[in-house]
Each structure stands twice: as structure tokens, then as C-alpha cells.
Design a protein around this nucleic acid. Sequence first.
DNA 1: CAAAATAGTTCAATTATTTAACTATTTAAT
DNA 2: ATTAAATAGTTAAATAATTGAACTATTTTG
Lengths: 149, 149
Amino acid sequence: MLERSIQQFIERYLSVSFLVHKRGAALMKCELDDITHDQYYVLRYIHKRGVCTSTELADVFAVNKSAITAMTNRLVEKGMIARGKDEDDRRIIALSLTERGKEWLVETEQKIYELVETMMTKLSHEEIEQFIQTYEKLAMILQEMEDGK
Amino acid sequence: MLERSIQQFIERYLSVSFLVHKRGAALMKCELDDITHDQYYVLRYIHKRGVCTSTELADVFAVNKSAITAMTNRLVEKGMIARGKDEDDRRIIALSLTERGKEWLVETEQKIYELVETMMTKLSHEEIEQFIQTYEKLAMILQEMEDGK
DNA sequence: CAAAATAGTTCAATTATTTAACTATTTAAT
DNA sequence: ATTAAATAGTTAAATAATTGAACTATTTTG
């Protein structure tokens, strides 16, 4: 039997997390012209890593590899990323941003940052820091839960 | 020009919010047999409200009404919700859970709650409370940003 | 070296979504 | 009271995200 307060936390968490994701995605969409919300995060991730593989993306975003193939196909068609070869292991496809992809990302990060900034500056630094720290803990906990299954 | 610390908050927030959403959805999916993650949240929302309309769902979840039509069609086919008439205004379709929908939701909430509980009990009550409070503030801020556009 | 594991793709199906055009009904303005 | 505007919802065509199973190519391992 769940403790009453925990049950209320869960209730509130489920409601608010879904809403914030949906509403945030809707607002971001306005700044992302041709690129979708999901594609934006994949571009961000590849950029952060420099180079990465399909398998890594599938692990990080917790989807099947075939979903990554489909998405990277679209991003290659749009000229945002390129597929490269790995000389050590010829099974591996090295994904990286094209010059155009990098340019687009820099421009777009600016717009997205302004959006998120508008949202964040309604809170104090302490509150933001605490919020993000807890959020990062949750990300780790989820990772562990996924691994230990 | 963005302050450096704000910029880092934004960076961290974007990374972590997407990850937690994706990983959370992947974990929840295991408990939701025939129903999708999005459908689950729509069922939850209708249940919480008792009765609601397509327009309300579209507003709340920040999608077009036609997306709601498509989704409610699937939920009707699955026997989870029913469309009713409104005698005062015959344009309005009143959406509500069927008995089967209610039963399914009660069973499933149990499983989902256990999942979220596993995650939450790694944090103190104070930390959870603070986290959810800030999250709820963000939801309101996003709502305002959407309205004021 | 043969068998098992790994990296990635293809294909068919389902779902979520958008936009534009549409029907039906209600509200408001003259 | 009648017409014009607004509102609620659907339809249809298109794109995107996703899964799962079957598949190819390559590398590792026993």
C-alpha cells in the first residue's frame, strides 16, 4: 500500500511532466522550421558528441535501432548530417553534423535558448539549480531502472 | 547576451528533460499492453475530468483538434471511451471513459504508480516536493507563454 | 575456423501529428 | 428574424516516429 503523500506526488508528477513536455514541444516547434522536435534533439546530441553511432543513439533515446535508421535517413536527406566510415570496424557508421547542420544548429540554439531563458528567468537561480539537479538524479535513476531489467 | 550560468542551466535542462521523457516513456510502455503512452495520458485526463470535449483535450495537450479526433477514434475502437451527446449544444461531443476504460485505468495506474514510486523513493520527500512545485510553476509559465503569443 | 555476437538496414504495420477543406450548429449583429 | 461569424468536430492526404522481425555484413570468441 502506497503512502498517501507519495501517491499524490506520483499523481502530480505524471500530470505535470506530460504537460510540460507537450507544451514545451509545441513552443519549440515554432523555432524549428523544417526540423522536428525529435530531430532537433538528435542533432544536439550528435553535435555534443562530435561523432556517434546509431547504436549509441538508440541506447540514449531508448528506441529501436530501426527508428534511428529512419530518422538519420531524414536528416541525411535534409543535409544536416553525414554518414562516415570507421576504418577499424567496418560495421560501424559514424554519424556527424555537416557544415550546414552545424550552422543550422548554432542559429537555432540561439532561438531555443531565448525561449527557455524566458521560462527560466521567472525562477531564482537557486530554484533552477535545485530543480535541474533533481531532474538529473531522476535521469540517472531511470537509466539504472532500465539497465536493471 | 546570455549570462553564462543561465546558458548552462538551459543546456542541462534541454538535455535532461528530453532524456527523462524518453526513458520514462520506454519504461511505462512495458506496463501499458495495448494502449500507447499518449493514449494513457488522454485516458487519465478524461478520467480526472469525468467528461470532456475534443477542444479541451486539444488545448490542454497543445495539439490540433484533428489529432484528438484520430486518437479518440482509436480509444473508442478499443472500447476505452465513449462519445456522448450534449443536449444543450448539439455541436459538442462529450467524451467519457467506459466501464472497461475505468477498470483498465485503475489496474494500470497501480502498475504505473509502482514504477514512479520506485523512482521517487530514491529521493527525500522534501526534494520531491520542491521538484514538483518548480515543475508545476514551469507548466504555468509555459501556459502563459503559449497564451501570450 | 565455425558459431555467436554486433552494427546497421529493410519492410510492413501502427500511431501521432499537421493543414486545409468541410459539415453542423450556435451566437451575434443589423 | 435573418444572415454572417464563430465554434465543435470530422475527413483526407501527407509526414514522422516507432516497433518487430527478418536480413546482410562484419567482428569476436571458444
